[in-house]
């Protein structure tokens, strides 16, 4: 009597898997199509009907990104933004520690202020932030590009939550041994934060690598463009050169894909707890 039931359940699971596979294929299609097209020479990319796998696969489009366009420079600028945002990650950890493990005047008010900044919509801050950076003489600088998103309120919040679990007795013992506050933070607290650092580090990399709005607004000088702004420019200037465009897109996506595959667990954990984009 149980046998038909299990069989129907198995068929059902197969049907579900099939539906999901088709859906997954539809989700993956834009990626696969851009990958395939990025290796096609100029004429083949406009073939009707198109070839699914390039007949004459070539690296030419990727080479042109660096030789004819400034993708090498854009990559360098993007890496600078990534490096700066890791300094921001350290600031988040420091603030998380400060809010978690010290009592001081104004703590609750300040922490509430930090949380309140999470509710400010980015697009609303676009114009005034530009004006602010312009007053400070930071437009058209790499620091100016990185500054608006350098620290994140959610990062501070997550670090704080995590660091409240660090036992006070551990910090006390270090203080009795005469360790300075900075030493306690770097040698005791940070090493205990491995898991949360992994999550936050991965998210920081992805966010900094993908950053678009601020470099778009803050950098007028093409020498300071990040990859995403450079790619946007490429689309405008080479509007019918689809092979080149797809190579640019693959160039941008591939590193994130590698990081995602390597640190999938952290990425998923980080995004689901934050619910941020």
């Amino acid at each position: 009597m149980t046998r038909p039931a299990t069989r129907s359940r198995r068929n059902e699971r197969r049907a579900t898997a099939l539906v999901l596979l088709i859906g997954g294929l539809l989700f993956a299609a834009p990626f696969l199509w851009s990958l395939s097209s990025s290796f096609k020479p100029r004429d083949e990319v406009l073939d009707v009907p198109p070839s699914l796998i390039p007949d004459n696969a070539t690296w030419a489009n990727f080479a042109r990104l660096v030789t004819e366009l400034e993708f090498g420079r854009y990559l360098g600028n993007t890496l600078v933004v990534v490096a700066l945002s890791f300094a921001g990650l350290l600031f988040n950890a420091m603030a998380g520690y400060g809010f978690a493990k010290f009592r001081f005047r104004g703590r609750n008010t300040l922490f509430f202020t930090v949380l309140a900044t999470m509710m400010i919509p980015v697009q609303v801050a676009m114009i005034p932030t530009y004006l602010l950076l312009n007053e400070a003489g930071l437009t058209n600088t790499r620091l100016g590009i990185a500054l608006p998103t350098l620290v994140s309120a959610f990062g501070v919040f997550l670090f704080r939550q995590f660091m409240t679990t660090v036992p006070d007795s551990l910090l006390e013992a270090a203080r009795l041994d005469g360790a300075s506050e900075a030493r306690i933070f770097f040698r005791i607290v940070l090493p205990l934060c491995g898991p949360i650092l992994a999550v936050q580090g991965t998210l920081t990399f992805i966010a900094a690598w993908n950053t678009f709005l601020w470099p778009l607004i803050i950098a007028n000088d093409q020498n300071l463009y990040t990859l995403s702004v450079g790619l946007s420019l490429l689309r405008g200037q080479n509007s019918s050169d689809y092979g080149l465009q797809m190579a640019g897109a693959v160039f941008m996506v591939a590193p994130v894909l590698v990081v995602f595959i390597a640190f999938q667990r952290y990425v998923v954990q980080g995004f689901t707890t934050s619910g941020l984009k």
């Binding site: 995403s228 790619l231 946007s232 465009q245 897109a249 941008m252 995004f271």
Partner: peptide
Amino acid sequence: FLPSITNIVAIAVV
């Protein structure tokens, strides 16, 4: 999940 962490410009280009 992949499209969520992919750069928006790359997505728009594709």
